[in-house]
Design a protein around this nucleic acid. Structure first.
Lengths: 216, 216
DNA sequence: GGTAGTTTGTGATACAAAGCACACACCCAT
DNA sequence: ATGGGTGTGTGCTTTGTATCACAAACTACC
């Protein structure tokens, strides 16, 4: 799975390849690091070294969105980071909901890495009556039957799926039905989604299974 | 990060593109599901529908490794699954070690999805004296100073990195130094590794950050 | 056992992404 | 203010990947 997507190029401008979009957050991350270490300017050469890619590719990628650099100098770090964040929609916060409050779901809602990046988990859902009503990491677990209304009331834009594989497709269908167009899927399947919905899969087993080819 | 790799095409035969290798585990997964539901034979068409890809691509991918199908019929499910598992090195078990026993490392060692797929976590490491010696999910946490000897004694082939970002690169260096050539990295950076070492990154924040582009 | 209907395996083709290389812009030192 | 040095932006080339399309191989049914 790793990274399924039915592209829906938002906004106007040229059509940007999805691979490019997927690289942008990595640029943002490195820019943030350089900014933190007090640097003001960075060249595509330096970025490339850090990210293990050619400077030309970085310049090409950036050129899809504008001309951010100065010849003979490089890129102003703060400015470029800001531009990229705006392009990616990271200049605001996003509300998310987690569906499936088993072991994995609990780990996800208590993961401290989302909020600092502007992803706020505002709701947790589960199908089991034993779990609904419990409070986990400060979230009152809701019944899946409330999914659609909660998504609308809380302005939730991202769904995170942590249910067992046998319920994953139906949960994803429910999220789509509720109007969600971005799904982070922890279940080990390639879900079917309509065009316009983006799904990213998190699947450590798949990653391991393709690595063994190189060491077998 | 998502999926960095310095290719090292093992064995002989033609050079197989890495994208192809990364798709094979997905084929294996679907084949297992079909086998479980009692099917005996499957066509590239059916596989394609399930995986949201063209039948031609599946046939091309498989053709890198041999001729597994029968015209007018399709593929024998059990046979193809077995072949692919052998190709990927999944016809055996693999020993892994987790480095970093914080919140994330604990979640990883207690994740029940690895063992059924033949990935056995045999050792856990941490740098902190407070944690070394503790038993977590049946594993006695060892000091990182023992990394190299443990890797050798326990025949560990896979390293799983769950340390904070500021120690990730040094831990990865230590794993490489210990002879590890396959690393699953949960830390949010693009690590530098020598050629011949494969790193796969698990990074939900990066996934989210590239999805927002499509809904912004 | 012949024929209609499938589905594979694969060259050829089309499409997409990455890399090259250089004109041009800008900085800085003098 | 002028010139040497540096690094961008981008058209062009190369490399890589996906798709097409069809002959060949097999099945099933009469």
């Amino acid at each position: 799975m790793a990274t399924t997507n039915n592209i829906a190029n938002t906004g106007s401008g040229p059509i940007v390849p999805e691979v490019v979009i997927q690289r942008l957050p990595r640029y943002v991350r490195v820019l943030t690091q350089f900014a933190d270490s007090g640097e003001k300017v960075i060249s595509s050469e330096q970025l490339g070294t850090r990210l293990q890619m050619t400077p030309a590719q970085i310049r090409k990628d950036l050129s899809y969105f504008g001309r951010f650099g100065k010849q003979g100098r490089g890129y102003d770090i703060a400015m470029l980071e800001g531009q990229l964040r705006t392009i990616l929609g990271l200049d605001r916060t996003w509300n998310a909901a987690v569906v499936g409050m088993g072991r994995l779901g609990r780990a996800v809602v208590s993961y401290p890495g989302f909020a600092p990046e502007g992803f706020n988990i505002l709701a947790a859902f589960d199908a089991s009556d034993d779990i609904v009503g419990q409070t986990i990491s400060g979230l009152q677990v809701r019944s899946i039957s409330e999914l659609k209304t909660s998504v609308q009331n809380l302005d939730i834009k991202i769904g995170i799926v942590t249910v067992p594989i046998e319920h994953a497709q139906e949960v994803i269908d429910a999220l789509v039905d509720a109007g969600i167009r971005s799904i982070l899927n922890y279940a080990p399947l390639s879900p079917q989604v309509p065009k316009g919905v983006t799904v990213r899969g998190i699947d450590p087993v798949l990653s391991l299974q393709s690595m063994t080819y190189y060491i077998r």
